[in-house]
Nucleic acid binder design. Structure first.
Length: 556
RNA sequence: GCCUCCGUAGCUCAGUGGAUAGAGCAACGGCCUUCUAAUCCGUUGGUCGCAGGUUCGAAUCCUGCCGGGGGCACCA
């Protein structure tokens, strides 16, 4: 009996009761969702449905609860159903019914916890999108971890998700980057507004190696040299970014070039930006004023209209944003998710307005997730001059698993101050090791069981009666709902918090219940059944860790 | 000024209207001839920023204050 099945039973019971009373109130499974009470005395699962429906159907909450409980007690697998307080219904499962979960988890394996709530949805998930003019740094890591984990959770809920990185490879920043790289390659003094940082010198050296005659080209045609240096520097830097992300266990399906939005088609077709402006103009959202092209975003809730062209005729960044949005729409994405830092908060209004101007629903077709900034206050961090901390250095210092876990375990809208020493520590004030250790323990038990002759030839769930066993089973039963909730709310941190609870329940169980008999005691069905439970715990720990992109080691 | 996020134990933070508000750390005290003690058990610790409101019930929803972060470009 899973909580979902219990909720279904309660929904049909309540539907009949409501109908018998002549009410046409509709009862859904959502209304009878049960939760795990904090207090053991309140049973395995509790429902507040009687309190929620009493008023709507004109009944006394406790009487309604009595009526529901009486019939809930008859459900196959329910040991007892009691009412408490103002009208809670506390349900206790019989041990065999609860214990079945262990077998179910093992049989479903990696599929356990996956659902179909978002089936059929095609979602574009854009995140990181850092300028390709330098290495990824601390500020990007939180979005990389959260974006990738969110995408994984959405996929677990049945959605088709494309991870996308928008490369700002057009405009003034790129030119500045090109001049910086060229100067470094030629061994010249850096231009006044050059990008700072050693990486420019490194890129310059590599460019000089790969274009041996760069100096000659520069002497005769400075512009040509700049173009070549800029292009090669860009490609090298982008490759570095991709490598860093892969090391961070973050994979992007699409790297979308801003430049491609500015480029006209081969047969003299307009560029995507021009095409986008034409389309929006045809819908009546574009106007001209003060020698500039504007889009009337105020018609869709923005606080001011926005310009598409600057005075010099060059398209604004926002014009490219609009064309990019239309590209996502044209590529068949329903929901477009943008994961942005709090410093981009001002973009929400105009992005939503573009969605509206494109004919999309500004509530359901676009989601802008704003994350608060992260800072790392470990004193050792400033070994590198300046306060830019590169992702690669972080990975070397802290490791992918620890960094991803810590970045994933807080909600995006909560400001985050990481303590580097804590992230790095190998003690139990470090939740990532606590959870990974729980998984390693399941693997150790598995190895030892095999050596001790405990096998899986029997499964007797009615024997799983120890308090730590019912607790652990309850946690395992909650997992699918946790995944569904995390997907619905786009909050992957719920997975991490759940894993910490699951790990705690597992450690407590391990401490109290032996899978392998002591000394000369015989192997019994209880031990064999516990091995199933151990397998199930390991499986769910693996499934959950995978959703936040963290490894599940067999040994620590 | 306007928009937005945050304010919960000494610290770092969970808590999608439910029961006595939780976890880890810190402090103090226990369990290793063990399926690896990176685990486990116990004790101490609270005006959920403040004040109203909504309701059977509010840390959670609404309003107003107070305090802090971020944002309000023909920059990218």
């Amino acid at each position: 009996m899973t909580p979902q099945e219990l909720a279904q039973h309660l929904a049909s019971i309540l539907t009949e009761i409501v109908a018998a009373r002549g009410s046409d109130v509709v009862v859904t499974e959502q209304d009878t969702k049960v939760d795990r009470p904090k207090n053991r005395d309140h049973g395995d699962w509790a429902s507040n449905a009687a309190m929620k429906f009493a008023k709507r159907i004109g009944a006394n909450p406790r009487e309604l609860a009595e009526e529901i409980a009486a019939r809930a007690a008859e459900i196959d697998g329910v040991a007892k159903a009691e009412i408490a307080g103002p009208g809670f219904i506390n349900i206790t499962l019989d041990a065999a019914s609860a214990g079945e979960t262990a077998r179910r988890v093992v049989e479903q394996g990696e599929a356990y916890g996956r659902g179909d709530a978002l089936a059929g949805q095609r979602i574009n998930m854009e995140f990181v999108s850092a300028n390709p003019t330098g290495p990824l740094h601390m500020g990007h890591t939180r979005w990389a971890a959260l974006g990738d984990s969110t995408a994984r959770v959405l996929r677990a809920a049945g959605a088709e998700v494309v991870n996308e990185y928008y490369i700002n490879d057009a405009g003034a920043q790129m030119n500045k980057f090109g001049r910086s790289v060229l100067a470094a390659a030629l061994g010249e003094e850096a231009p006044e507004d050059a990008y700072p940082g050693e990486y420019i010198q490194t890129l310059g050296k590599r460019v000089a190696e790969q274009i041996p005659d760069l100096a000659e080209i520069a002497a005769s045609d400075r512009e040509a040299a700049l173009e070549q240096a800029q292009e090669l520097g860009y490609q090298l830097q982008l490759a570095e970014i991709k490598d860093s992300l892969e090391r961070f266990n973050v994979h992007f399906d699409v790297f979308f070039s801003e430049r491609s939005l500015h480029t006209a088609g081969e047969n003299g077709e307009k560029s995507p930006i021009e095409g986008a402006i034409d389309r929006l103009r045809a819908e009546g959202h574009v106007f001209e004023e003060d020698d500039a092209i504007w889009v009337r975003t105020t018609a869709f809730g923005d606080d001011k209209d926005r310009v598409f062209t600057r005075g010099n005729g060059i398209f604004t960044y926002f014009a490219a944003d609009a064309a990019y949005y239309l590209s996502k729409k044209d590529r068949g994405f329903g929901e477009k998710i943008y994961l942005l830092g709090a410093d981009h908060h001002g973009y929400i209004g105009r992005l939503k307005a573009i969605a509206g101007a494109a004919g999309d629903n500004t509530e359901t077709d676009i989601t802008v997730l704003i994350g608060q900034l992260v800072n790392l206050n470990g004193a050792r961090l400033s070994k590198r001059a300046g306060n830019i901390i590169e992702l690669d250095d972080l990975l070397e210092w802290l490791g992918t698993d620890a960094l991803r876990y810590w970045l994933a375990r807080y909600p995006a809208d909560s400001p985050l101050a990481l303590d580097g020493e804590k992230v790095r520590s190998r003690t139990n004030d470090n939740p990532v090791f606590y959870v990974q250790y729980a998984h390693a323990r399941t693997a150790a038990v598995d190895r030892n069981a095999a050596a001790a002759g405990v096998d899986r030839s029997a499964f007797a769930p009615e024997l799983l009666t120890h308090a730590t066993e019912t607790d652990l089973l309850g946690k395992l039963q909650q997992y699918p709902a946790i995944v569904a909730g995390a997907a619905e709310l786009r909050e992957p941190h719920r997975i991490a918090r759940y894993l910490e609870e699951l790990a705690a329940a597992y450690h407590r169980w391990y401490d109290n219940c032996r899978v392998i008999p002591m000394g000369e005691e015989p192997v019994e069905d209880l031990h064999r059944t516990r091995l199933w439970l151990n397998d199930a715990a390991g499986q769910v720990l693996r499934n959950g860790l995978d959703l936040i992109g963290v490894s599940a080691p067999e040994r620590l």
